[in-house]
Lab assay of single mutants.
Amino acid sequence: EPLWIRPDAPSRCTWQLGRPASESPHHHTAPAKSPKILPDILKKIGDTPMVRINKIGKKFGLKCELLAKCEFFNAGGSVKDRISLRMIEDAERDGTLKPGDTIIEPTSGNTGIGLALAAAVRGYRCIIVMPEKMSSEKVDVLRALGAEIVRTPTNARFDSPESHVGVAWRLKNEIPNSHILDQYRNASNPLAHYDTTADEILQQCDGKLDMLVASVGTGGTITGIARKLKEKCPGCRIIGVDPEGSILAEPEELNQTEQTTYEVEGIGYDFIPTVLDRTVVDKWFKSNDEEAFTFARMLIAQEGLLCGGSAGSTVAVAVKAAQELQEGQRCVVILPDSVRNYMTKFLSDRWMLQKGFLKEEDLTEKKPWWWHLRVQELGLSAPLTVLPTITCGHTIEILREKGFDQAPVVDEAGVILGMVTLGNMLSSLLAGKVQPSDQVGKVIYKQFKQIRLTDTLGRLSHILEMDHFALVVHEQIQYHSTGKSSQRQMVFGVVTAIDLLNFVAAQERDQK
Protein backbone atom coordinates (compact mmCIF):
# COMPACT_ATOMS: atom_id res chain seq x y z
CA GLU A 1 0.00 0.00 0.00
CA PRO A 2 1.40 3.46 -0.90
CA LEU A 3 2.45 5.82 1.89
CA TRP A 4 0.09 8.42 0.45
CA ILE A 5 -2.19 8.93 -2.53
CA ARG A 6 -2.21 12.30 -4.27
CA PRO A 7 -5.46 14.23 -3.86
CA ASP A 8 -5.06 15.45 -7.45
CA ALA A 9 -4.59 11.99 -9.04
CA PRO A 10 -6.19 11.65 -12.51
CA SER A 11 -9.86 10.80 -12.32
CA ARG A 12 -10.98 7.33 -13.44
CA CYS A 13 -14.65 8.31 -13.54
CA THR A 14 -16.48 7.02 -16.64
CA TRP A 15 -19.48 9.39 -16.47
CA GLN A 16 -20.53 10.77 -19.85
CA LEU A 17 -23.48 12.98 -20.72
CA GLY A 18 -26.17 10.80 -22.30
CA ARG A 19 -24.88 7.53 -20.89
CA PRO A 20 -27.71 5.40 -19.35
CA ALA A 21 -27.84 5.39 -15.54
CA SER A 22 -28.06 1.59 -15.67
CA GLU A 23 -24.41 1.49 -16.80
CA SER A 24 -23.15 3.33 -13.70
CA PRO A 25 -20.69 1.23 -11.64
CA HIS A 26 -21.80 2.98 -8.45
CA HIS A 27 -24.46 2.30 -5.86
CA HIS A 28 -27.10 5.04 -6.13
CA THR A 29 -29.57 6.13 -3.47
CA ALA A 30 -32.94 7.78 -3.98
CA PRO A 31 -34.15 10.54 -1.62
CA ALA A 32 -36.19 8.98 1.19
CA LYS A 33 -39.22 10.52 2.88
CA SER A 34 -38.50 11.46 6.51
CA PRO A 35 -40.54 9.84 9.30
CA LYS A 36 -42.23 12.07 11.89
CA ILE A 37 -39.73 10.95 14.54
CA LEU A 38 -36.16 10.54 13.31
CA PRO A 39 -34.21 7.48 14.55
CA ASP A 40 -31.03 9.61 14.88
CA ILE A 41 -29.71 13.01 13.82
CA LEU A 42 -28.12 11.60 10.65
CA LYS A 43 -31.62 11.41 9.15
CA LYS A 44 -31.66 15.22 9.24
CA ILE A 45 -29.04 15.39 6.51
CA GLY A 46 -30.43 16.47 3.14
CA ASP A 47 -33.83 17.81 2.10
CA THR A 48 -32.69 21.39 2.73
CA PRO A 49 -34.98 24.34 1.88
CA MET A 50 -34.93 26.49 -1.24
CA VAL A 51 -35.47 30.14 -0.28
CA ARG A 52 -36.15 33.14 -2.50
CA ILE A 53 -33.64 36.00 -2.18
CA ASN A 54 -35.90 39.04 -2.37
CA LYS A 55 -33.81 42.20 -1.85
CA ILE A 56 -30.26 41.59 -3.03
CA GLY A 57 -31.20 40.61 -6.59
CA LYS A 58 -33.29 43.76 -7.01
CA LYS A 59 -30.55 45.90 -5.46
CA PHE A 60 -28.11 44.78 -8.16
CA GLY A 61 -30.59 45.06 -11.01
CA LEU A 62 -31.31 41.38 -11.66
CA LYS A 63 -34.40 40.70 -13.76
CA CYS A 64 -34.43 36.97 -12.98
CA GLU A 65 -35.60 35.13 -9.87
CA LEU A 66 -32.76 34.45 -7.40
CA LEU A 67 -33.10 31.36 -5.19
CA ALA A 68 -30.84 30.01 -2.43
CA LYS A 69 -30.37 26.33 -1.60
CA CYS A 70 -29.72 26.64 2.15
CA GLU A 71 -27.29 23.83 3.00
CA PHE A 72 -26.69 25.17 6.52
CA PHE A 73 -29.98 23.46 7.48
CA ASN A 74 -28.18 20.10 7.44
CA ALA A 75 -27.65 18.49 10.87
CA GLY A 76 -24.00 19.53 11.16
CA GLY A 77 -24.55 22.94 9.60
CA SER A 78 -23.07 22.52 6.11
CA VAL A 79 -23.31 20.93 2.68
CA LYS A 80 -20.43 18.64 3.71
CA ASP A 81 -22.74 16.62 5.97
CA ARG A 82 -24.08 14.98 2.82
CA ILE A 83 -20.73 13.66 1.63
CA SER A 84 -19.55 12.74 5.13
CA LEU A 85 -22.51 10.44 5.70
CA ARG A 86 -22.36 9.06 2.16
CA MET A 87 -18.62 8.25 2.41
CA ILE A 88 -19.15 6.44 5.73
CA GLU A 89 -22.20 4.51 4.49
CA ASP A 90 -20.42 3.42 1.30
CA ALA A 91 -17.30 2.39 3.27
CA GLU A 92 -19.49 0.36 5.64
CA ARG A 93 -21.35 -1.21 2.72
CA ASP A 94 -18.17 -2.42 0.97
CA GLY A 95 -16.61 -3.65 4.24
CA THR A 96 -13.78 -1.08 4.39
CA LEU A 97 -15.03 0.51 7.60
CA LYS A 98 -15.66 -1.80 10.55
CA PRO A 99 -16.83 -1.21 14.15
CA GLY A 100 -14.02 0.26 16.27
CA ASP A 101 -12.05 1.62 13.30
CA THR A 102 -10.57 5.12 13.12
CA ILE A 103 -11.59 7.76 10.58
CA ILE A 104 -8.89 10.31 9.63
CA GLU A 105 -9.61 13.20 7.28
CA PRO A 106 -7.71 16.27 6.03
CA THR A 107 -10.31 19.04 5.82
CA SER A 108 -10.97 22.77 6.07
CA GLY A 109 -13.40 21.94 8.86
CA ASN A 110 -16.90 21.32 7.51
CA THR A 111 -16.23 17.79 6.24
CA GLY A 112 -14.56 17.16 9.59
CA ILE A 113 -17.68 18.28 11.46
CA GLY A 114 -19.85 16.07 9.25
CA LEU A 115 -17.58 13.06 9.80
CA ALA A 116 -17.27 13.73 13.55
CA LEU A 117 -21.06 13.96 13.79
CA ALA A 118 -21.53 10.65 11.98
CA ALA A 119 -18.64 9.06 13.93
CA ALA A 120 -20.25 10.12 17.23
CA VAL A 121 -23.53 8.45 16.23
CA ARG A 122 -21.91 5.38 14.66
CA GLY A 123 -19.20 4.90 17.31
CA TYR A 124 -15.97 5.48 15.37
CA ARG A 125 -12.82 7.24 16.56
CA CYS A 126 -12.32 10.40 14.50
CA ILE A 127 -9.13 12.41 13.87
CA ILE A 128 -9.41 15.66 11.91
CA VAL A 129 -6.36 17.37 10.36
CA MET A 130 -6.96 21.00 9.44
CA PRO A 131 -4.92 24.13 8.55
CA GLU A 132 -4.32 26.78 11.23
CA LYS A 133 -6.33 29.48 9.43
CA MET A 134 -9.62 27.68 10.03
CA SER A 135 -11.89 29.25 12.62
CA SER A 136 -11.77 28.48 16.34
CA GLU A 137 -15.52 27.81 16.20
CA LYS A 138 -14.93 24.80 13.93
CA VAL A 139 -12.31 23.50 16.35
CA ASP A 140 -14.68 23.90 19.31
CA VAL A 141 -17.51 22.06 17.54
CA LEU A 142 -15.16 19.23 16.53
CA ARG A 143 -13.90 18.86 20.10
CA ALA A 144 -17.47 18.84 21.42
CA LEU A 145 -18.27 16.00 19.00
CA GLY A 146 -15.35 14.00 20.41
CA ALA A 147 -12.97 14.39 17.47
CA GLU A 148 -9.21 14.64 17.94
CA ILE A 149 -7.74 17.65 16.13
CA VAL A 150 -4.32 18.14 14.53
CA ARG A 151 -3.45 21.62 13.14
CA THR A 152 -1.06 22.22 10.23
CA PRO A 153 0.59 25.36 8.74
CA THR A 154 -1.81 27.28 6.48
CA ASN A 155 0.87 28.08 3.90
CA ALA A 156 2.16 24.50 3.51
CA ARG A 157 1.80 23.18 -0.06
CA PHE A 158 -0.66 20.31 -0.42
CA ASP A 159 2.15 17.86 -1.35
CA SER A 160 4.34 18.92 1.59
CA PRO A 161 4.72 16.45 4.51
CA GLU A 162 3.60 19.32 6.80
CA SER A 163 0.32 19.97 4.92
CA HIS A 164 -3.03 18.76 6.24
CA VAL A 165 -3.01 16.10 3.50
CA GLY A 166 0.55 14.96 4.28
CA VAL A 167 -0.01 14.81 8.05
CA ALA A 168 -3.26 12.86 7.63
CA TRP A 169 -1.51 10.19 5.55
CA ARG A 170 1.33 9.96 8.07
CA LEU A 171 -1.20 9.32 10.84
CA LYS A 172 -2.97 6.71 8.73
CA ASN A 173 0.32 4.85 8.26
CA GLU A 174 0.96 4.93 12.03
CA ILE A 175 -2.51 4.06 13.41
CA PRO A 176 -3.85 0.50 12.92
CA ASN A 177 -7.32 0.05 11.39
CA SER A 178 -7.48 3.68 10.34
CA HIS A 179 -8.94 5.00 7.10
CA ILE A 180 -8.79 8.23 5.13
CA LEU A 181 -12.13 8.40 3.36
CA ASP A 182 -10.50 11.10 1.21
CA GLN A 183 -13.07 13.62 0.04
CA TYR A 184 -10.63 14.75 -2.69
CA ARG A 185 -10.72 11.37 -4.47
CA ASN A 186 -13.79 9.55 -3.15
CA ALA A 187 -16.56 9.04 -5.74
CA SER A 188 -19.08 9.18 -2.88
CA ASN A 189 -18.43 12.94 -2.73
CA PRO A 190 -19.97 13.92 -6.11
CA LEU A 191 -22.39 10.97 -5.95
CA ALA A 192 -23.99 12.36 -2.79
CA HIS A 193 -24.87 15.51 -4.72
CA TYR A 194 -25.79 13.72 -7.94
CA ASP A 195 -28.25 11.47 -6.07
CA THR A 196 -29.72 13.91 -3.54
CA THR A 197 -28.80 17.62 -3.78
CA ALA A 198 -29.40 17.85 -7.53
CA ASP A 199 -32.67 15.90 -7.32
CA GLU A 200 -33.89 18.18 -4.53
CA ILE A 201 -33.09 21.27 -6.62
CA LEU A 202 -34.91 19.86 -9.65
CA GLN A 203 -37.93 18.94 -7.54
CA GLN A 204 -38.04 22.29 -5.73
CA CYS A 205 -37.77 24.19 -9.02
CA ASP A 206 -40.15 21.87 -10.92
CA GLY A 207 -37.28 21.19 -13.30
CA LYS A 208 -37.09 24.85 -14.34
CA LEU A 209 -33.81 26.64 -13.72
CA ASP A 210 -31.54 28.55 -16.06
CA MET A 211 -28.37 29.02 -14.01
CA LEU A 212 -26.70 27.41 -11.01
CA VAL A 213 -23.89 29.16 -9.13
CA ALA A 214 -21.69 27.25 -6.67
CA SER A 215 -18.38 27.97 -4.96
CA VAL A 216 -15.79 25.24 -5.43
CA GLY A 217 -13.50 23.48 -2.95
CA THR A 218 -13.07 19.74 -3.49
CA GLY A 219 -15.45 20.17 -6.43
CA GLY A 220 -17.80 17.40 -5.36
CA THR A 221 -20.80 19.71 -4.95
CA ILE A 222 -20.59 21.39 -8.35
CA THR A 223 -19.60 18.16 -10.14
CA GLY A 224 -22.44 16.05 -8.76
CA ILE A 225 -25.12 18.72 -9.17
CA ALA A 226 -23.93 19.83 -12.61
CA ARG A 227 -23.84 16.31 -14.03
CA LYS A 228 -27.45 15.67 -13.02
CA LEU A 229 -28.58 19.09 -14.27
CA LYS A 230 -26.82 18.55 -17.62
CA GLU A 231 -28.85 15.34 -17.98
CA LYS A 232 -32.21 16.67 -16.82
CA CYS A 233 -32.03 20.39 -17.59
CA PRO A 234 -29.48 20.77 -20.44
CA GLY A 235 -30.09 24.51 -20.93
CA CYS A 236 -28.98 25.36 -17.38
CA ARG A 237 -25.65 27.23 -17.23
CA ILE A 238 -23.23 26.11 -14.50
CA ILE A 239 -21.14 28.87 -12.92
CA GLY A 240 -18.11 28.01 -10.76
CA VAL A 241 -16.77 30.38 -8.08
CA ASP A 242 -13.07 30.24 -7.15
CA PRO A 243 -11.32 32.61 -4.69
CA GLU A 244 -8.37 34.75 -5.78
CA GLY A 245 -5.23 32.85 -4.78
CA SER A 246 -6.67 29.46 -5.79
CA ILE A 247 -5.99 27.65 -9.08
CA LEU A 248 -9.27 25.80 -9.74
CA ALA A 249 -10.73 28.17 -12.35
CA GLU A 250 -10.40 27.91 -16.11
CA PRO A 251 -8.97 29.32 -18.32
CA GLU A 252 -5.66 29.38 -16.47
CA GLU A 253 -5.25 33.14 -17.04
CA LEU A 254 -7.99 33.74 -14.46
CA ASN A 255 -5.70 32.33 -11.76
CA GLN A 256 -2.74 34.60 -12.46
CA THR A 257 -2.14 36.66 -9.32
CA GLU A 258 0.60 37.30 -6.78
CA GLN A 259 -1.91 36.53 -4.02
CA THR A 260 -1.46 33.08 -2.49
CA THR A 261 -3.59 33.27 0.66
CA TYR A 262 -7.19 34.24 1.32
CA GLU A 263 -9.42 34.46 4.38
CA VAL A 264 -12.61 32.83 3.06
CA GLU A 265 -12.75 29.20 4.23
CA GLY A 266 -13.76 25.95 2.59
CA ILE A 267 -13.25 26.88 -1.06
CA GLY A 268 -10.26 27.04 -3.40
CA TYR A 269 -7.09 24.91 -3.48
CA ASP A 270 -3.53 24.91 -4.79
CA PHE A 271 -4.20 21.62 -6.62
CA ILE A 272 -7.02 20.18 -8.75
CA PRO A 273 -8.92 17.58 -6.66
CA THR A 274 -9.58 14.29 -8.42
CA VAL A 275 -13.37 14.54 -7.96
CA LEU A 276 -13.61 17.97 -9.64
CA ASP A 277 -14.91 17.64 -13.21
CA ARG A 278 -14.22 21.06 -14.71
CA THR A 279 -15.79 20.06 -18.05
CA VAL A 280 -19.30 20.50 -16.59
CA VAL A 281 -18.64 24.12 -15.56
CA ASP A 282 -19.72 26.54 -18.30
CA LYS A 283 -17.99 29.61 -16.87
CA TRP A 284 -15.71 30.45 -13.96
CA PHE A 285 -15.58 33.65 -11.91
CA LYS A 286 -12.96 34.66 -9.35
CA SER A 287 -14.04 36.18 -6.03
CA ASN A 288 -12.15 38.14 -3.39
CA ASP A 289 -12.37 38.23 0.39
CA GLU A 290 -13.84 41.71 0.66
CA GLU A 291 -16.84 40.99 -1.57
CA ALA A 292 -17.30 37.55 0.01
CA PHE A 293 -17.66 38.93 3.54
CA THR A 294 -19.61 42.00 2.43
CA PHE A 295 -22.19 39.84 0.66
CA ALA A 296 -22.31 37.31 3.51
CA ARG A 297 -23.14 40.14 5.91
CA MET A 298 -25.70 41.43 3.40
CA LEU A 299 -27.38 38.01 3.21
CA ILE A 300 -27.65 37.99 7.00
CA ALA A 301 -28.80 41.60 7.43
CA GLN A 302 -31.16 41.89 4.46
CA GLU A 303 -32.41 38.34 3.87
CA GLY A 304 -32.06 36.79 7.34
CA LEU A 305 -29.93 33.96 5.91
CA LEU A 306 -27.38 33.03 8.59
CA CYS A 307 -24.70 31.79 6.18
CA GLY A 308 -20.91 31.67 6.01
CA GLY A 309 -18.32 33.55 3.94
CA SER A 310 -18.28 31.21 0.93
CA ALA A 311 -22.01 31.87 0.53
CA GLY A 312 -21.07 35.53 0.17
CA SER A 313 -18.59 34.61 -2.58
CA THR A 314 -21.31 32.69 -4.39
CA VAL A 315 -23.91 35.47 -4.27
CA ALA A 316 -21.32 38.14 -5.17
CA VAL A 317 -20.64 36.20 -8.37
CA ALA A 318 -24.32 35.37 -8.95
CA VAL A 319 -25.34 39.04 -9.16
CA LYS A 320 -22.73 39.45 -11.93
CA ALA A 321 -23.32 36.20 -13.81
CA ALA A 322 -27.13 36.41 -13.70
CA GLN A 323 -27.19 39.84 -15.37
CA GLU A 324 -27.61 37.94 -18.65
CA LEU A 325 -30.85 36.28 -17.46
CA GLN A 326 -34.25 37.78 -18.26
CA GLU A 327 -37.53 38.12 -16.41
CA GLY A 328 -39.13 34.72 -15.90
CA GLN A 329 -35.75 32.96 -15.71
CA ARG A 330 -34.27 31.50 -12.54
CA CYS A 331 -30.83 31.40 -10.90
CA VAL A 332 -30.08 29.04 -7.99
CA VAL A 333 -27.14 29.64 -5.64
CA ILE A 334 -25.72 27.12 -3.16
CA LEU A 335 -25.17 28.52 0.35
CA PRO A 336 -22.71 25.95 1.79
CA ASP A 337 -22.53 26.59 5.53
CA SER A 338 -23.68 28.51 8.59
CA VAL A 339 -22.43 31.67 10.27
CA ARG A 340 -21.95 29.53 13.41
CA ASN A 341 -18.43 28.76 12.16
CA TYR A 342 -17.40 32.42 11.87
CA MET A 343 -18.70 34.28 14.93
CA THR A 344 -15.21 35.61 15.75
CA LYS A 345 -14.35 36.23 12.10
CA PHE A 346 -16.40 38.13 9.50
CA LEU A 347 -19.36 38.53 11.87
CA SER A 348 -17.07 40.57 14.16
CA ASP A 349 -16.60 44.27 13.32
CA ARG A 350 -13.23 44.17 15.06
CA TRP A 351 -12.01 41.30 12.85
CA MET A 352 -13.31 43.02 9.71
CA LEU A 353 -11.47 46.21 10.69
CA GLN A 354 -8.23 44.36 11.40
CA LYS A 355 -8.35 42.68 8.01
CA GLY A 356 -9.17 45.90 6.19
CA PHE A 357 -12.63 44.78 5.01
CA LEU A 358 -14.35 47.48 7.06
CA LYS A 359 -13.37 51.13 7.53
CA GLU A 360 -13.46 52.99 10.83
CA GLU A 361 -15.94 55.49 9.38
CA ASP A 362 -18.36 52.60 8.80
CA LEU A 363 -18.77 52.42 12.59
CA THR A 364 -20.55 55.26 14.35
CA GLU A 365 -19.26 54.99 17.93
CA LYS A 366 -17.32 57.98 19.35
CA LYS A 367 -13.55 57.76 18.89
CA PRO A 368 -10.66 59.33 20.86
CA TRP A 369 -8.82 62.37 19.45
CA TRP A 370 -5.94 60.33 18.02
CA TRP A 371 -8.13 57.74 16.24
CA HIS A 372 -7.92 59.21 12.72
CA LEU A 373 -4.23 60.17 12.84
CA ARG A 374 -1.93 58.21 10.51
CA VAL A 375 0.63 55.61 11.59
CA GLN A 376 3.37 57.83 10.16
CA GLU A 377 2.70 60.26 13.05
CA LEU A 378 4.33 57.75 15.43
CA GLY A 379 7.79 58.60 14.09
CA LEU A 380 8.99 55.00 14.18
CA SER A 381 12.72 54.30 14.21
CA ALA A 382 14.43 52.09 11.63
CA PRO A 383 13.60 48.42 12.29
CA LEU A 384 15.94 45.66 13.35
CA THR A 385 15.80 42.94 10.68
CA VAL A 386 17.54 39.59 10.33
CA LEU A 387 18.43 37.42 7.34
CA PRO A 388 16.98 33.88 7.15
CA THR A 389 20.51 32.42 7.20
CA ILE A 390 21.40 33.70 10.69
CA THR A 391 21.24 31.06 13.44
CA CYS A 392 18.48 30.85 16.04
CA GLY A 393 21.03 31.19 18.84
CA HIS A 394 22.54 34.35 17.37
CA THR A 395 19.07 35.83 16.73
CA ILE A 396 18.08 35.28 20.38
CA GLU A 397 21.30 37.03 21.50
CA ILE A 398 20.60 40.01 19.21
CA LEU A 399 16.98 40.39 20.33
CA ARG A 400 17.94 40.23 24.01
CA GLU A 401 20.81 42.68 23.55
CA LYS A 402 18.65 45.21 21.68
CA GLY A 403 15.61 44.72 23.93
CA PHE A 404 13.25 43.50 21.20
CA ASP A 405 10.74 40.66 21.38
CA GLN A 406 10.43 40.17 17.63
CA ALA A 407 12.10 40.99 14.33
CA PRO A 408 11.16 40.85 10.64
CA VAL A 409 13.05 38.32 8.53
CA VAL A 410 14.02 39.75 5.13
CA ASP A 411 16.05 38.56 2.16
CA GLU A 412 19.18 40.31 0.85
CA ALA A 413 17.01 42.75 -1.13
CA GLY A 414 14.95 43.66 1.94
CA VAL A 415 11.77 41.83 0.88
CA ILE A 416 9.71 40.52 3.80
CA LEU A 417 9.84 36.75 4.32
CA GLY A 418 8.13 36.54 7.71
CA MET A 419 8.63 37.20 11.41
CA VAL A 420 10.51 35.61 14.29
CA THR A 421 9.68 36.17 17.94
CA LEU A 422 11.71 35.48 21.03
CA GLY A 423 8.89 33.42 22.54
CA ASN A 424 8.40 31.29 19.44
CA MET A 425 12.12 30.55 19.10
CA LEU A 426 12.54 29.65 22.78
CA SER A 427 9.51 27.34 22.76
CA SER A 428 10.76 25.65 19.56
CA LEU A 429 14.20 25.14 21.14
CA LEU A 430 12.73 23.75 24.37
CA ALA A 431 10.48 21.39 22.40
CA GLY A 432 13.48 20.12 20.43
CA LYS A 433 12.02 21.25 17.10
CA VAL A 434 15.15 23.28 16.30
CA GLN A 435 18.73 23.58 17.54
CA PRO A 436 20.55 26.86 18.36
CA SER A 437 22.73 26.22 15.30
CA ASP A 438 19.74 25.95 12.94
CA GLN A 439 18.98 28.85 10.62
CA VAL A 440 16.25 31.19 11.80
CA GLY A 441 14.41 30.49 8.55
CA LYS A 442 13.19 27.27 10.19
CA VAL A 443 11.07 29.16 12.73
CA ILE A 444 9.68 31.88 10.46
CA TYR A 445 5.95 32.34 10.68
CA LYS A 446 3.66 34.43 8.51
CA GLN A 447 0.59 34.76 10.72
CA PHE A 448 1.21 38.39 11.58
CA LYS A 449 -0.70 41.61 10.91
CA GLN A 450 0.55 44.23 8.48
CA ILE A 451 -0.24 47.93 8.47
CA ARG A 452 0.75 50.83 6.23
CA LEU A 453 1.98 54.31 7.11
CA THR A 454 -1.22 55.79 5.69
CA ASP A 455 -3.48 53.59 7.86
CA THR A 456 -5.06 55.16 10.94
CA LEU A 457 -4.03 54.71 14.54
CA GLY A 458 -7.59 53.49 15.08
CA ARG A 459 -6.97 50.53 12.81
CA LEU A 460 -3.63 49.93 14.54
CA SER A 461 -5.43 49.99 17.90
CA HIS A 462 -7.82 47.26 16.75
CA ILE A 463 -4.88 45.10 15.62
CA LEU A 464 -3.01 45.56 18.91
CA GLU A 465 -6.07 44.49 20.90
CA MET A 466 -5.50 40.98 19.51
CA ASP A 467 -1.80 40.93 18.57
CA HIS A 468 1.40 41.91 20.36
CA PHE A 469 2.75 43.86 17.38
CA ALA A 470 2.08 44.92 13.81
CA LEU A 471 4.56 45.09 10.95
CA VAL A 472 4.59 48.47 9.20
CA VAL A 473 5.16 47.93 5.48
CA HIS A 474 5.29 49.97 2.31
CA GLU A 475 5.03 48.92 -1.32
CA GLN A 476 7.88 49.36 -3.75
CA ILE A 477 7.48 49.07 -7.52
CA GLN A 478 10.50 47.50 -9.20
CA TYR A 479 11.12 47.59 -12.96
CA HIS A 480 13.01 44.76 -14.64
CA SER A 481 15.20 44.66 -17.74
CA THR A 482 12.31 43.02 -19.62
CA GLY A 483 10.24 46.17 -19.15
CA LYS A 484 7.86 44.47 -16.75
CA SER A 485 7.28 45.77 -13.24
CA SER A 486 6.51 43.99 -9.98
CA GLN A 487 5.35 45.19 -6.59
CA ARG A 488 7.09 44.05 -3.43
CA GLN A 489 6.62 44.77 0.24
CA MET A 490 9.42 46.32 2.28
CA VAL A 491 9.69 46.69 6.07
CA PHE A 492 9.34 50.19 7.48
CA GLY A 493 9.09 49.30 11.15
CA VAL A 494 7.56 47.21 13.91
CA VAL A 495 4.97 48.85 16.17
CA THR A 496 3.71 47.61 19.55
CA ALA A 497 1.06 48.74 22.03
CA ILE A 498 3.82 50.45 24.04
CA ASP A 499 4.70 52.62 21.01
CA LEU A 500 1.06 53.69 20.65
CA LEU A 501 0.62 54.36 24.38
CA ASN A 502 3.86 56.36 24.57
CA PHE A 503 2.77 58.49 21.60
CA VAL A 504 -0.68 59.22 23.06
CA ALA A 505 0.77 59.99 26.52
CA ALA A 506 3.45 62.30 25.08
CA GLN A 507 0.92 64.22 22.96
CA GLU A 508 -1.46 64.69 25.89
CA ARG A 509 1.43 65.80 28.14
CA ASP A 510 2.54 68.37 25.55
CA GLN A 511 -1.01 69.73 25.22
CA LYS A 512 -1.16 70.32 28.98
Rank of each mutant, 00 (worst) to 15 (best):
N341A: 01
G245Q: 00
L430K: 13
K367S: 08
E475I: 09
K320A: 11
P336T: 06
D349Q: 08
M343Y: 05
T454R: 09
F295G: 08
Q259H: 14
L254V: 07
M466D: 12
D242K: 02
R330G: 02
Q329N: 08
G441W: 07
N255A: 05
S481N: 12
K433I: 07
L399T: 06
K433P: 06
W371V: 09
S437L: 14
A407K: 03
Q326S: 12
I398A: 13
F469H: 08
F293A: 02
Q326N: 13
D270V: 03
G493N: 11
R340C: 03
D242E: 06
Y342I: 01
T364D: 13
G304Y: 00
Q329E: 11
W371D: 09
T344S: 03
P336D: 05
E290M: 14
L430I: 15
Q450S: 14
M352R: 04
L363W: 10
A322M: 01
V443I: 14
M419I: 14
M425E: 05
V434A: 12
I238T: 08
S428N: 11
E361T: 15
R340Q: 07
G414C: 12
V434T: 11
A505L: 02
G304Q: 02
K367M: 15
W351M: 05
E324C: 03
E252D: 15
M466H: 12
T391P: 12
E397K: 14
E327C: 12
A407L: 13
M419V: 15
V472N: 05
G418C: 07
P436L: 14
Y445S: 12
V410S: 11
K484A: 03
I334H: 03
Q259G: 12
M466Q: 15
L460T: 08
F492I: 14
F469P: 10
D242N: 04
Q406N: 06
I247N: 07
M343F: 07
Y445V: 14
A505Q: 08
T274E: 02
Q450P: 03
E360F: 15
F293D: 00
P388V: 12
P408Y: 00
D242R: 03
Q476R: 05
G379D: 14
T496W: 02
D277F: 02
K367L: 15
D270C: 05
A431M: 09
A407I: 13
D349C: 07
V420K: 00
M425V: 15
K442P: 15
H474G: 11
A382K: 11
M466Y: 13
F448W: 13
E327N: 03
H468Q: 12
M352D: 03
K433V: 12
Y342T: 01
V504T: 15
D349Y: 07
T391F: 15
G423M: 02
K286L: 00
L299R: 04
I396N: 13
E360G: 15
G379T: 10
T482M: 13
R374P: 10
Y342R: 01
L422P: 04
T314K: 11
I398Y: 13
I463L: 14
S437V: 15
V410H: 13
G308P: 02
T389Q: 13
H394G: 03
I300T: 07
Q329K: 11
A292V: 09
A249P: 04
Q329P: 03
K446D: 07
Q439S: 08
E508N: 13
V415R: 09
P388M: 07
M419S: 14
W370K: 05
P251W: 05
Q354E: 11
Q435F: 15
T364E: 12
L276A: 03
Q376H: 11
R509P: 12
R374W: 09
Q487N: 15
Q259R: 12
A321Y: 08
M466P: 11
M352H: 01
K484W: 13
E412Y: 10
T389C: 04
K345W: 00
A296V: 06
I239K: 04
K446C: 15
W371Y: 11
L501D: 04
C392G: 07
V332M: 13
G403N: 03
V434M: 15
R340F: 01
K449M: 09
P408L: 03
L501N: 07
V241G: 10
V241E: 07
F271A: 02
L384K: 10
V494H: 02
Q489E: 12
V281I: 04
M343C: 05
E265W: 01
L384P: 07
G309K: 03
D499P: 01
H468M: 11
E397D: 13
L417H: 15
N288L: 14
Q447I: 12
T496M: 07
W351K: 01
V317G: 10
T314L: 01
P388R: 11
T314E: 02
K283Q: 14
K283V: 12
S338V: 04
A301Q: 08
L305I: 11
S338C: 03
L325P: 00
V440I: 15
F448D: 02
S310T: 08
A318R: 01
A316R: 13
V386K: 06
W370T: 06
Q259C: 09
N424K: 13
V495S: 14
T274G: 06
A311V: 06
A321D: 10
V275R: 00
C307Y: 01
K402G: 14
T364K: 11
G304N: 03
M490N: 12
H480A: 15
C307H: 05
K359H: 11
G441C: 08
A431E: 10
E244W: 02
K359M: 13
P388F: 05
T279L: 15
G483A: 14
E327D: 13
V420M: 12
G423L: 09
A321I: 03
A413C: 14
K433M: 13
T294I: 15
E263K: 15
E401V: 15
H462F: 15
E508D: 15
A505T: 13
E303S: 08
R509K: 14
D362L: 11
R297M: 02
R297K: 06
S461F: 15
L378H: 05
H474I: 04
I247P: 07
A413M: 14
G423A: 07
S246N: 05
V472Q: 14
V420W: 00
F469Q: 14
P408T: 03
L373Q: 03
G309Q: 02
I498R: 02
E365L: 13
P388C: 07
Y479E: 11
A506T: 14
Q435N: 12
L306T: 05
D467L: 08
I477A: 14
G356T: 07
H394A: 01
I390H: 07
E327I: 04
V319Q: 08
D438R: 10
E475V: 14
V264Q: 11
V491H: 08
F346V: 02
L500S: 05
Q354V: 04
Y445G: 03
R452Q: 02
L422K: 08
L353Y: 14
A292D: 07
D282A: 07
Y262T: 08
R278N: 06
V280C: 09
L429K: 08
E465R: 10
E377Q: 13
E365W: 13
A413V: 15
V494Q: 05
A407R: 01
A382L: 13
V332S: 03
I416M: 13
S310R: 04
L430F: 14
Q489A: 12
G441L: 14
T482P: 13
S461P: 11
F346I: 13
F271K: 00
A321T: 12
D242Q: 03
G308F: 00
G432P: 08
D499L: 01
V339D: 05
A296D: 04
I239G: 05
Y269F: 01
A506N: 10
L417D: 09
